[in-house]
Nucleic acid binder design. Sequence first.
DNA 1: TATGAATGAGAGTTCATTCAT
DNA 2: GATGAATGAACTCTCATTCAT
Lengths: 235, 235, 235, 235
Amino acid sequence: MGKHLSDNGYSRVTLRMGRYARKVSTGPAFKRLPRAVREQQMLDSAVRVFSRRGYHGASMDEIAEVAGISKPMVYAYLGTKEELFVACLHRESTRMMEAIAGAAAPDLPADERLWRGLRAFFGFVGAHRDGWAVLYRQARAEQPFARELTAMRARLVEVVAGMLDHALRAEGREVAGTELEVVAYALVGASESLADWLADHPEADPEKTATRMMNVAWLGAAQLLLGITWHPPEP
Amino acid sequence: MGKHLSDNGYSRVTLRMGRYARKVSTGPAFKRLPRAVREQQMLDSAVRVFSRRGYHGASMDEIAEVAGISKPMVYAYLGTKEELFVACLHRESTRMMEAIAGAAAPDLPADERLWRGLRAFFGFVGAHRDGWAVLYRQARAEQPFARELTAMRARLVEVVAGMLDHALRAEGREVAGTELEVVAYALVGASESLADWLADHPEADPEKTATRMMNVAWLGAAQLLLGITWHPPEP
Amino acid sequence: MGKHLSDNGYSRVTLRMGRYARKVSTGPAFKRLPRAVREQQMLDSAVRVFSRRGYHGASMDEIAEVAGISKPMVYAYLGTKEELFVACLHRESTRMMEAIAGAAAPDLPADERLWRGLRAFFGFVGAHRDGWAVLYRQARAEQPFARELTAMRARLVEVVAGMLDHALRAEGREVAGTELEVVAYALVGASESLADWLADHPEADPEKTATRMMNVAWLGAAQLLLGITWHPPEP
Amino acid sequence: MGKHLSDNGYSRVTLRMGRYARKVSTGPAFKRLPRAVREQQMLDSAVRVFSRRGYHGASMDEIAEVAGISKPMVYAYLGTKEELFVACLHRESTRMMEAIAGAAAPDLPADERLWRGLRAFFGFVGAHRDGWAVLYRQARAEQPFARELTAMRARLVEVVAGMLDHALRAEGREVAGTELEVVAYALVGASESLADWLADHPEADPEKTATRMMNVAWLGAAQLLLGITWHPPEP
DNA sequence: TATGAATGAGAGTTCATTCAT
DNA sequence: GATGAATGAACTCTCATTCAT
């Protein structure tokens, strides 16, 4: 039962009998930390627990315990379970978007940008498999977080569509916004799927995965650039 | 709380007196139905409720109520909530696979097959938006169903990879199995994403969505057929 | 799950899915049996299931299944679960009392009678370990059956007390009824305990257990016959 | 159904409106008590309820209500129903063993020790009829507790066997361990039976019951001391 | 600031028991 | 006579959330 003792350096031991733990703060340094630090501790724990157990499987009890803090503090600092989850989502997605944006500088040629973006993306997912699991897999399934998630995905789609558009214009071509978006949406979806797969395979290499996705994406996109399209056969 | 009165013709209502409920079977025709029929009713309700509320949000109580029977019958016939969900998954995924397989006859040319397969797929999703939500969105998020889901996705990937392989060989070319699979995986992922999007947009046209996906897929694949690949730049 | 298929020759197979079994009657001979026979089948099954699972652990479902009969029949023939249990109790205790009474003929000398009675008792327990478990262990714990049990024990006590009294009178001595009864009660209690032990040790030899009990009982009783008693020391 | 209102001074009442209940904390003093205190309250209630209704008949709801707290606290502090029962068993049996051990000092002559031990035993049972009912009658019937119970009984048997052995050696005699143990087992069984009887007869006098048991035990044992044994007749 | 103590509400699951065929 | 279908009623257990100290 003592399965989730804090393994992150925060100090708090749990002697079990019944369900409520007999909690004992240990170690010399159990300081009153400034709020900001505590909040990060909590988010760290929350992300870890959410990704280990899923949104529903996670209990506020465990999150607090892993954070080395009492439950009321969690509520005081970060609010409801739902709010807490949103906070996690927020932090992680911001980090991810920053990683991608930082890598894919807007002044590079389109394929270079796409490649760097993908590499950053899969690199991030690979390095934060936990975060990704929270970010996407959970959020996708639970209505309350759909909005947050949709927003984030929209940003990605926009970035990708922008890239394509840029490349097309460079070629002197132009494609309807909707069409572009759908293609972008599909590419983002494909990336998500591969990211899922990456998160599930700890031994997999992010770089290689990025290369694979690049093949699919770029080659697919290239067609578009060449103005080739497919039409359904007449019935 | 009288939120989920049965809206499917099955008759069982919940009368409320103050805070409390009392279930009453109503209507003249409350026949004892044979097991097979009841099971389908239950699965229908379960699919609906699961997709409306999500796996965790769904309660066995509501499922039973919507099905127009008492909870114990659900347990008697279909077992645990988890088992029930798996049963839904099973039925829906079987139906879907059958729809696809029925459409994409193996003796057609590759692009024709792919197109028909996609059309069937999006057609199915569009027609069973409920089922799709159960099938994928929920299952992806909950560990216990991952296996079932993975298996199904694997079947899809296999089909797609087979298609590509077939087309390649017709062109006298050959590609390593792994590579094919990753491409297939990405395409399946892209389709899933568009399906998600379709499920969320009741007004969207399945046929058009299929066309879009076909563009991405076939054109991307076409490159592969031509032997064009992309490689990461030397650092 | 198919753990308790009937292993007593009655023919009924159970295909599981969900909780309700899909029951199928098999074999050529699934006759409509006369009531008396059916009742014995049921009691057999009930005794077995009760002793395997305990009164509460036993379910009417399982009892019916083991009996190879549908639940409503059990209710029709033997009534409520409680009544069914009492019926078991009754049958088993009657059998046991008959075994004992048959062995300990009243015209034998006291020690001979006691010995034969004990031998019969432990023999019976050893041969019907199931029955004993139902009879005593369960019944002792559940209030509703206390009366039945008490009655039966009373009969035993009476028999034993009678024996002692007879022996005493033969020696020209006499002891107050109450005293006799308490001694008898204690001896019965000791026997029950050893019976419990015997029921739990399948390899144990009833005859030897009887001998041991005889030693305790008869030697203890012998003192009584000699008029020796113990008194608490003056404070 | 308002059958189990708290009758021990703890304050928590169940108000009924029609068929339904609403729990309300009453009284002016509804303090937050320290864990240790609450735990004892809970154990008190649990012992009482278990002995009144039996293990299965007892509901966690009632136990909580009688203890004057909410159900979750019971789970928080003492765990599952099963664990709770074991905790009761533990506390009561420890108390009892202490009572006995405290009375029967090892340096007394054997008969004196036996007498004091029995007096303490029946005294305890008489004073804690509730506890005894929990301790033995329930535990005997339910498999999960058999081990705990067996362990405790084994301790008793050991004590008694030790006593006998001691006395025998003082007489310069020696008896095989197994034989001693069986005799001890039987004596313990006899005591348990009388204890059962005592628990069922509120008016009965523990001291007198102890005397009676002493008669049976000591006199029976005395034979052993004299080297007299009984053998089955040759067939 | 920080926490132990406390709880309302509800979910899944099981069972004895009975109709209706 | 026999059974599949059906259900009311509990019961255990968990969890997010909040006082009171």
